[in-house]
Amino acid sequence: MLPSTDVSRDESRGAGPDRAEVVVALAAIALGLFVFFASFSIDLGTGYDRIGPRFFPYVVAAGLVLSGSFLARGALRRPNPSPTEFHLQTSWPAIGTLALALGSSVLLLERAGFILTAALLFFLVARAFESRRPWRDAVVGLLLSVFVYVAFTRGLGLVLPHGLL
């Protein structure tokens, strides 16, 4: 067995199916099953309608299961699916930082207000992109957030949470 460094992973791509693709295919099938079984709890309503509100969900459920199966079959059969996928390496620290950025921004938006939340979001996104100038990012993020807040609330009449400020 080769040690699984990033380089060898790329070279050994022909050896097995793309796991991410199989996972996506299974997720599509699972979503289809969910759509199917959850449709039983849809109230049928007053019977004016000949088809009813459950029919289309059945079609969609069937479509998800079928297209997911085709995707899975394709992924298992063709170990090297598409040329655009070569050299795909996923940087998990970047994804983690972005997940933190998104999570904190949902939680803070209505508590800390738009300006602080957006500035933090901007700063964290810049970290995920491996920026080496944290001070610049913090200042630019804050200036942008203040500018956007003022322009959109005063100028365009939108309502944004003011929060702590």
Binding site: A101, L109, L121, F122, A126, F129, D137, G141, L144, V148
Partner: peptide, 14 residues
């Protein structure tokens, strides 16, 4: 890129 994508996410949230 850090500033560009930071800005994109700020506008997306807004």
């Amino acid at each position: 890129a850090p500033l560009l994508y930071g800005g994109i996410l700020v506008f997306a949230t807004l």
